[in-house]
Nucleic acid binder design. Structure first.
Lengths: 197, 197, 197, 197
DNA sequence: AATGAATGAGCCTTCATTCAT
DNA sequence: GATGAATGAAGGCTCATTCAT
């Protein structure tokens, strides 16, 4: 069976994730992506405008999926604690299951002054917004102490998860990342003043 | 008086911080650093092995200074809360006062598989160790609840500060970063179970 | 009725003339010709060996037709003056009516060291020969002064027409090209010593 | 003695003329020019913006010099015949002595829709203007019949010279080009109605 | 030590051509 | 015959690094 057009696009994207994770975006040659994807160099340009376009689409598409995943996991949650748990656990599990993507995300997410930044900014801000909504709702429901700064609280939640992920990537050990969900949640509970379980 | 060897070295390093902050390490040409530093391209190679060496030395030296600064600020602290406050406040203030350095630090800190990573790892781990020591001491002194995972707690402290800094850099607004010290400390107090003030 | 093989061949040739005229042979992509002709890229290679072959056939066929046209116009001419007039007028009118072809002809006629040159050389030399025959016949009939160099005289006739055509193409104005027939003929009459009308 | 900056610029220009003449602008690799000039590929880009810039500067500078040469040769001329002779003879001699330049000029002078065309247009128009001035002055001095179209007359003068040059280039024979000055002048005399010598 | 012109390896991208359908 | 997705060779240009002055 021939490889369909859809498949090829995805294969190039997957190859790019693997390649970027291994050597970083800037040190990665387009021909390396092509080799991993099993296509010719020129084929890449049938699906992507240029090298940067690969990175941009990678972020927007995969992060879009990721945020959808988190939203769906949160639907059945009744209280703030379980919503936070859904975020933390889904995030850590997803990174654990997609280590290469995690590596790229952690590393390349922060380029200054590039068209890349503005492309990334949209899904990232959407994620931030989602976390802040959970916090705001928690305050409204009297589950979270009202006096805290919502943005800083969100920075704590995301920053902690993000840092744990980065540490896990660089540690290269086999230790589980998602197992840290409970530790993290306990800290967040105390910080936000969530009621005892 | 002629510019001494020391001065020229520092001037190149400062120029590099400015240049890297503006366009990013990979997009920055050595000649740009030379122009900002007011020296010839070739002169850079009298002081640095190559382009990457500039970045490595930049991190190790400036982060070394930074850690020294934090240690000195912490010397007079008697309890865990004030030690944490010293860390948070010194970190945020330092980044606020050295925005270009902050930009480089936040952006370029995470290159995979490069000799850069191992160079950065040393001072970064020292900083992590410092935070973890404060937490461990807090547990020993019964100021922090003992059941938490020290590493995850450190990831929270550093991750939150780090994320707040990144947000502040990309926000490009004039809002103060160091003013968030108290918000952050309140969260950490709750998370770690610090006694009421 | 389906488009016949003949038709498709001609359509590609016409498309090539249009495309080459617009952007020049070297800057013209084969896919552009295909798009204008309304065929797939690959189809072109069913009718032409390669890109250069399109240009070669374009010249040989269209110039062959052009020379036939001039010959037929000259058949009814009784004297040198009317023969020259036929050449000049037919040439200018033809270029005026086929501006795109004229553009390609004027521009691409002169590539050094290519298989293109030798392909063009044949019809071009035939045209030159035709002009020189008119001159030689004029000398034999005592209509043209015998002391002139036939080749140089032909260079004058062709060069003048050719230059006027090039100027007209680049002028992009709406001024008529064929209207210059009489001016040109008057110059040629004086140069060649044709008898008064 | 070191090669001065000026020299290197000229050497690259000369190398480009030779290389373009041999294989044509489009088929000529920048590395070929570099090899002939005896410099590294990158050095070219210290002196020229890009490949097209080489061609543009080549035309503007060398044609500027050429027009100056013709002007200087014409200064001592007292009548129209000697002015025309100066133009024809200087043009033919110059092309004969600079065959490679002539080849490039004849071939690459006519690219449509490129920034090249507008760059060439200026010196070329200046040359046309010079020829037309000679004709206009001749009419004013009653040396040339007044009824002719000046533009077409100029097209004849330039077109004939240009065509003779092209023929000479493609002939590749050792026959002299400049020796045709007199043939050509005799034709022009008759065409323009110049008084007998 | 300082310079900056010169180097040349390296890479992204294009596009003529092919070939499985 | 017709298609157009896929190919991959080729080349213009950049820029970190060198070295003669």
């Amino acid at each position: 069976m021939a490889v369909s057009r859809e498949d090829k696009y995805e294969r190039i994207l997957d190859a790019a994730i693997e390649a970027f994770a291994e050597v970083g975006y800037h040190s990665c040659q387009v021909s390396k992506i092509a080799r991993i994807a099993g296509v010719a160099d020129g084929t890449i340009y049938l699906y992507f405008k240029n090298k940067e376009d690969i990175l941009i689409r990678l972020f927007t598409e995969r992060m879009g999926d990721f945020i959808q995943l988190i939203r769906s996991k949160m639907e059945s949650c009744q209280d703030t604690r379980s919503r936070l748990r859904a975020i933390v656990h889904t995030h850590l599990t997803h990174m654990e299951n997609n280590r290469a993507l995690a590596t790229v995300t952690q590393v390349e997410l922060r380029q200054p002054n590039s068209s890349l930044y503005s492309a990334i900014a949209v899904p990232l801000r959407e994620y931030f917004r989602l976390v802040e909504e959970v916090i705001e709702e928690g305050i409204k429901q009297n589950e979270i102490i009202p006096s805290l700064n919502v943005r800083v609280a969100r920075q704590m939640v995301f920053g902690t998860i993000d840092r744990a992920t980065t540490d896990w990537i660089f540690a290269r050990s086999e230790r589980s990342l998602s197992k840290e969900t409970d530790c993290m949640l306990k800290l967040f509970s105390g910080a936000l003043g969530l009621p005892k379980e």
